[in-house]
Amino acid sequence: MAMHDDEIVRLFWERREEALRETQEKYGRYCQGIAKNILENDQDAEECTNDALMKAWESIPPERPASLKAYLGRITRNLSFNLYRKAHANKRGGGAFTAVLDELAECVAGGVEPEEEWAKKELAEAINDYLAGLPKDRRQLFAARYFYADEIPVIARRFGIRENTASVRLARLRKGLREYLTERGFHL
């Protein structure tokens, strides 16, 4: 049985290298899955996963994540997305992950960027508020597609629904998000 997260975090805090081994064993595949969804390349995904572990090592302590899983997921996602952006500095690629961005582009108008840190924070908080108001299964669907960048067929299988149904539900979620943010004064 895998070690409890509290125990793993404790190992990080004690600066014991078993922390990395235990994290790799428990969350290595999870992180790699996220990186693979974004980068669509096994080797890059593996490198990103290793980098994510090192970032965790560098940041815990002082961080003491309430959810180690979410913490690692977020780091991996950020690193993978940064790498994706470097690789597609001039134009978007044509892969499965690009479809995720294309869908999100429907929610925005390409206007002003939220450059200020507080504006980014407010946007993130508004998205959290929107998600908190959704039924759990819709939130799960949203997270699967727009946090984890899962492909539609994968989502459909997991949720036991048809691909078309998944796409329609996601479109409604995007529309709902756009309306929610617009009503709250965000310049999309």
């Binding site: 994540p65 309430a66 959810s67 899983k69 979410a70 913490y71 997921g73 977020r74 996602r77 950020n78 997305f81 952006r85 995720v100 961005l101 294309d102 999100l104 582009a105 929610c107 925005v108 960027e113 939220p114 980014k120 924070k121 946007l123 993130a124 998205i127 959290n128 998600l131 908190a132 939130r139 997270a143 727009y146 946090f147």
Partner: peptide, 16 residues
């Protein structure tokens, strides 16, 4: 879209 994708990355732990 990239800004929105980044902001979604800050979703609450429990939703992740």
């Amino acid at each position: 879209a990239e800004d929105l994708f980044e902001a979604i990355g800050q979703m609450d732990d429990r939703f992740v």
